[in-house]
Amino acid sequence: MYVSDVTVPDSLPQALIFIAMLVPGFSFVTVRTWFVGWRTPDHGAGSRLLEALYVSAIFIVVYVGIFVIGVSIAGIWTGDGSLDAARRWVETSWATTPGVVTAVLSMVLLVGLPGLLGALLNWRTKVTTVDSDGVAKTETKPVNRNQPTPRAWDHSAYGADYPRFVRVKTNTGVYVGGWFDASGYISTYPFDRDIFIAHQWHMDPKGKFVRPMKDSLGVWVPITDDCIVEWIAFEPANT
């Protein structure tokens, strides 16, 4: 089976051009994800790369179009608005542009404008709500409908940054729990859900905390879809 050769950048200028073609899309998608949160396609690296390429292509087409229009308008005053004039500008005037100007212009066009557009398109929207008295009112709220974390488990895990009790009902109906603090660990996306409870407690069949387990060095619990996890801020005697 014949496999066609894939052209890869073999010099620094080619590598920089290739990177510049990706940056606008990544800037736009990153800012969009910051406001809107993770969507289903965002979980795959391939789909995110394809979207970044698509967005970058749009920005590059727009930039080239603006450049050509600008050259045409300038040609009205100079009498030469052909594309050949644009070629001569790229070959001569652009080469003499100070490096600082080139760097600033590149940051604005490749990072700043795509990111700003991503923020403007996904920042806020007007939402009509009805309060308990039946009065409808329109509010401007962030457009974000999801947390930027992929699942509720991840969001609750990020919030477990202060000591608390945790109780896990496994898929076999057995309760496992204890005191969760900085000595414990919890796994989030993209890894499988699990939790390490450093201070394990004895649990009765109904899930009540009985007493700390002597000589325990902790317990690891895989969190499957059939498990129920409870974060508890009360004393064990009240649970």
Rank of each mutant, 00 (worst) to 15 (best):
I69H: 02
G177N: 02
T30M: 11
F26L: 15
W201T: 05
K214M: 06
G134L: 05
I19Y: 08
L83S: 09
V61W: 12
D161K: 08
I232Y: 04
T40R: 08
D161A: 11
G207R: 00
Y63E: 07
S72E: 10
V61R: 04
V127I: 15
D10H: 07
G218Y: 00
P9N: 07
W34D: 04
V64T: 10
V31T: 11
I197Y: 04
F234D: 15
F196K: 03
H199F: 05
E235A: 13
F67N: 10
W77L: 06
W201Q: 03
E230T: 12
F180P: 05
V127E: 14
I228R: 15
D80H: 11
A52C: 06
L105G: 14
D161Q: 09
T30N: 05
S27E: 03
K208E: 04
L53S: 10
T239Y: 11
P212A: 12
G44P: 00
L116V: 09
V174D: 15
V219Q: 13
T170H: 01
S47A: 13
T92E: 12
V31W: 00
V90H: 12
T30Y: 06
T149M: 14
M1K: 09
Y2K: 13
T172A: 13
A136W: 01
M213A: 11
T188F: 01
G178P: 02
D154Y: 01
S56T: 04
Q147D: 15
G70P: 02
R48D: 07
S82K: 09
L116G: 08
S4P: 00
T40P: 00
G25H: 09
W153N: 10
G75R: 09
I223A: 06
G207L: 10
A85H: 05
S106L: 07
M203I: 01
R193F: 04
Q200C: 01
T92N: 12
M21T: 10
I73Y: 12
